Structure formats: C-alpha cells, structure tokens
Simulated assay, not measured.
Amino acid sequence: MTFISRHLLAAPAFALLLAAAAPAFADPGDKALDDVRILSADDMQGRAPGTPGSEKARAYILSRFAQIGLSPIGETFEQPFSFAKRDGTAVKGINLIARIKGTDAGGKAMVVSAHYDHLGVRDGQIYNGADDNASGVAGLLAVAEAFKEKAPKHDVIFAVVDAEEGGLRGARAFVANPPVPLETIALNVNFDMLSKNAKNELYVAGTAPFPGLKPILVKVATTAKVTLKLGHDTDADGKENNWSNQSDHYAFGEKGVPWVYFGVEDHPEYHKPTDDFASVPQDFFKRSVATVVQASLALERDLGTATGR
C-alpha cells in the first residue's frame, strides 16, 4: 500500500532455471507462501524501483509466469516507464504484463493487479515488504494458476506493477499506455496486503462506488475461508479510512474503470523493517489467498453485468 495512506521473452536465463527447479505444491496456499518467502527475502533488498533487488524480483516473477504458462501481450512481458523522484533523480520502472485469453469473443477484459515494489534499504535496514506487497503478488499468481486451470470467459490480464509506493507510478503508466483499449477493461481487481490480520478479517473495497459488484461479493463472503468484510470505500469513518485512492486501483478509477480492492487493515509491521516473512501468519494468509481466488473467479463470471462496461 502506498504512502498516501497509510520478458519472459527477454528475461534473464536464470529465471528459466528458477522455473524449472521450482518444487511442486499440492496446496496452492503453500506455493503462495513460498512466493512471499522468496520475494521478501533479504537478497531482494526491499525491491525498490531501479535497483538490483527489483531486477531480481522481476526475474523470479517472470519465472513464475513461465511455470504457470502465461503469455505476454505482444513480444515481451515487460512494460518499462520512467519517472522522477522528489529530488529530481530519474528512475526506470518496469511493469510485468501477462494475459490468459478468454473463451468468448466478447472483447471485455478483467485486469488483476498487484505491485511488487517496496521501500528498499533505509538507514542500513531492509524493508522486505512481505505483506506490502509480496503477499499481493502471491495472490495474483494464485489467481493466474486458477484461471490457467480453467480458462475464463473473458480475457484476464495480470499486471504486476512497479513503483506503487509514493505515487502509483506503474499503475498510472499502465492506464496511460494500456496493452488493450481502455474501454474494453471492465474491471480492475487489485491486491495490496493480504497476509496479516489478527481478527481473521480481509476487506474488499469498491462496492459503494460500484454497487453492481455487491451481490457477487456478498455471496463470496458467505463461504469465504476468512471473514470477508465490505467497506473502506466511503468517508463515513473519516477520509483516512477510505481506501479508494490508496493503492493501484485508484489509477484505474481515475480513468473511469470500475475496481475492487482486497487488503487488510494496517498493522504494527506496516512500512516497517519488521514486515518480513517470519511475521506472516501462515494459516490466515493461505485462507486469504483462497478467498481472493474465489472472488476473482466469481467476478470474472459476471464481468459485464456487474460493472455495466
């Protein structure tokens, strides 16, 4: 989650080796845990944009794209962009974009997004970002595996975006230069912080601004493996508790694309060096991943009617 709130075609060769060497997991939640462990390890150096740690994280994610069998849109998975930091320093960010084609020729698409960057190294301490947002990337990869196992009706685009922290740079680069016409994107499903909540609660925001999504998500909540709560999408409890602009879905919303956002409330490790794999409650996270997979499948089934696009 950003501060305002709270190729395989061009991949390095060792990414292919990672994919080939990856162990088999009977439980998708176990694989998601492994994704979080690897992406939040010290050798990723906090995954700050434009750093060797960010490059290493991309190589791992691309290896997972290969393992799942995802395809790029065009010649490469990589969508580079540039931005300037507050001190004027130019930084190159890189989004990773993949797609599973739908079985129907309706032209609509659903974008599943999660940012892979975090805060890097500050004052000698590594900000590993296990919850923020290795957990969201792991959730996205689990959703991709589910759609690869059973093809969706509509195209599903997977956007693992860079430089969310402090400005939603990757998401804004995506919507400024979308791989498909923006008007064909019926919904953005965004994951940011899925792994830590002492009350067994996962929130989904977006049903207040997009009420057509509410019946789908209420139904999911009745059988979800965690307590799935709707909210954090109005100013009723104060602007600070309205998550409508607090992660990458906001970039889609700015362009008129409906969105839903899955995440947990802030916790003591948020944006701290202690947000590492050791602090992830593994059982809750596995059930949270199962819930976002269930919800994503349900949202895709009713894509057009739910959003009116």
Rank of each mutant, 00 (worst) to 15 (best):
D192K: 03
K199A: 15
V220P: 02
D155H: 00
A224K: 01
D155W: 00
A236W: 02
K229W: 00
K150V: 12
V189N: 04
T223Q: 12
V218F: 01
K148Q: 11
P209C: 10
A171Y: 13
K214P: 02
N241K: 15
N241F: 12
L213W: 07
F158H: 02
T207E: 10
V226C: 06
P181F: 10
P181G: 11
M193F: 03
P178S: 11
A205F: 10
A144C: 06
F147I: 08
P179A: 10
P152S: 11
K214Q: 13
V218D: 15
D233I: 06
G167D: 14
F147R: 04
V175M: 03
H154P: 00
P211T: 14
K196H: 08
E145S: 14
T227M: 03
K219T: 14
A224Q: 01
D237K: 12
A163R: 07
I216K: 04
K153T: 03
S244G: 11
V156L: 00
V218T: 15
L182I: 12
E201K: 13
A151K: 13
K214D: 10
K214Y: 03
D237T: 11
G238V: 12
N177K: 15
H232N: 13
K196Q: 15
V189S: 07
N241C: 04
A198K: 13
P181T: 12
E149N: 10
D235H: 09
A224G: 02
L182A: 14
D155V: 00
L141D: 10
A159Y: 02
P211Y: 12
K196M: 15
L187N: 04
H154E: 04
T222M: 05
D162W: 03
P179I: 08
L140Y: 06
A186I: 06
D192R: 02
G166F: 04
T234P: 06
A173Y: 05
A159C: 12
I216Q: 08
V226Q: 06
L141M: 13
P178D: 14
T223I: 01
E145Q: 15
G166A: 08
L217F: 06
L194S: 08
W243D: 09
V218Y: 01
